[in-house]
Nucleic acid binder design. Structure first.
Lengths: 125, 125
DNA sequence: CTAAAACCTGACGCTGACGTCAGGGGCAAG
DNA sequence: CTTGCCCCTGACGTCAGCGTCAGGTTTTAG
């Protein structure tokens, strides 16, 4: 479609999004399947993304790394792009926050156990 | 075996170890299967553990929580009960340490993202 | 125009620490 | 003796985030 693209209307195809965010194409499709990411479709059926899709995918990765499930991320997504939260969402947010904090403490304790045997007891890098 | 137990020779059965460490009986058997835990056997085939098995299982849980696999834990166990490490073990220890540290940083970043939308921007509890 | 590269939709495979069910002993109390 | 609880050994099931293969269409480079 040779519409004189006004330079601001650039769209991304799935491969570009994937490479941009450092994940696989399969992963991006998976996110859509989980209701995290929506895409326009070209007449031939190919997915077309806006540039912020890359940022979004990176955000998903961050949440996954923090132990959130696809479902949780989907439930909490509106909190970011609407800036508003209801009671249920607040509860989930706090629950996740506490869980992650606990995990940080656990990891820190594990680190201490490792350092203990390594001998790198230099207090702070 | 009615050997006059000198009060120091107390042994534990698998259920006691499991409850003591807060894991399932299945988990304790799994640790043995992975070469993490060895047990004597009663004449009837039941596993008999020493008291420190509970501590050991708790330690496994801590390492699992830190993202180590059974194999890694098995490879690094000698470092603790022998107090000695060879070059390969030191490399693994440092690698795991770095990985965990990176994970801590990731979690911290995720926490910040959550707090950002929660509004609990109180610097430190 | 043609070949390569990229995209599409299923759909099965993988990993790791267990859960769980099946089928069968053993051992103390009442 | 029998009731009940704990133990045993397989061995299949689970879950979540993808990997990967199959078979086919579309877009792009030359």
């Amino acid at each position: 479609m040779t519409v004189t693209e006004t330079s601001a209307e650039r769209v991304l195809r799935i491969g570009e999004v994937a490479r941009g965010a450092g994940v696989s194409v399969r992963a991006v499709r998976y996110y859509e399947q989980q209701g995290l990411l929506t895409a326009e479709r070209s007449p031939s059926g190919q997915r077309l993304y806006r540039q912020d899709a890359v940022t979004l995918v990176r955000f998903f990765q961050q949440m996954y790394a923090a132990g959130l499930t696809s479902q949780r991320i989907a439930e909490l997504l509106p909190c970011w792009d609407s800036g508003h939260t209801d009671a249920e969402q607040r509860a989930m947010l706090r629950a996740e926050r506490d869980r992650i904090q606990a995990k940080v403490d656990d990891l820190q304790a594990a680190l201490d156990r490792l350092d203990e045997v390594i001998g790198i007891t230099d207090t702070h890098p």
